[in-house]
Each structure stands twice: as structure tokens, then as C-alpha cells.
């Protein structure tokens, strides 16, 4: 029975981590909603460039959190990580190449 007890403690820590990430995701979502429309909390509108860059940054942070902690990429076997990151590289190629330069 004792070792089962120990497992429970370990799982509690695991749960704690999941819940912390969940709270962070929630906070980031709220921040994201406020950034393009700051009048919701009574602030002046932000410059457009700042809005775009910060939103992209926040979205990437959230995806990295989900991929890292919920999809268990952190602590995954090293060979899986480059496979998981490959589409990011290729979609960056695609987006940069598609950008309408004149």
C-alpha cells in the first residue's frame, strides 16, 4: 500500500503542473482578448504593430505550452522532438515565401 501512496503524491505533483499550465493558458487568453480592444479595461488603443507582434508572440507561447506539457514534448525521446518541430520550420518557409512583396 505504501508504494501506491507514493505514486499518488507523484501524481498530485503532475496534476499540479497540468493545472498551473491550464491557469497560464487561461490568463494568456484573457490578455489576448484585451490587446486588440484595450477599451474593455479602459486603456488607450495600442499601436497596430505592437498588437500584431504581441498576439503572434502570445499565440506561439500558448502553442509551445500545449505542445510541451500536454503533448509531453518536454521529456520526450530526443528523436521525436525534431519531427514535431519540423512543420514549424516548413510553415515559416511557406509564410515568408508567400508574403506579398512587390
Amino acid at each position: 500500500m505504501a508504494h501506491k501512496e507514493a505514486k499518488w503524491v507523484a501524481n498530485d505533483i503532475l496534476h499540479l503542473q497540468y493545472m498551473v499550465i491550464w491557469a497560464v493558458l487561461l490568463v494568456l487568453t484573457v490578455v489576448e482578448v484585451i490587446i486588440p480592444e484595450p477599451s474593455l479595461v479602459g486603456l488607450e488603443a495600442f499601436p497596430r504593430t505592437f498588437v500584431i507582434l504581441s498576439l503572434i508572440g502570445l499565440a506561439l507561447t500558448k502553442t509551445i505550452l500545449v505542445a510541451g506539457y500536454y503533448m509531453h514534448l518536454i521529456g520526450e525521446k530526443p528523436a521525436v522532438i525534431p519531427i514535431a518541430c519540423a512543420p514549424f520550420l516548413f510553415s515559416v518557409f511557406l509564410t515568408i515565401g508567400l508574403f506579398p512583396y512587390y
Binding site: 482578448v33 498576439l55 499565440a59 505542445a67 503533448m71
Partner: peptide
Amino acid sequence: GLYWHFVDLIWILVFTFVYLI
């Protein structure tokens, strides 16, 4: 779970790019 989290991850991006920016 991997598939389900991936769907969630994509939604985070779609939500940001379609609704917010």
C-alpha cells in the same frame, strides 16, 4: 490525446489570427 491536444493547439492559432489580429 496527442490528436486532441493538436486540435486545441491549432485552435489557439486560428483564434488569434482570425478573430483577434
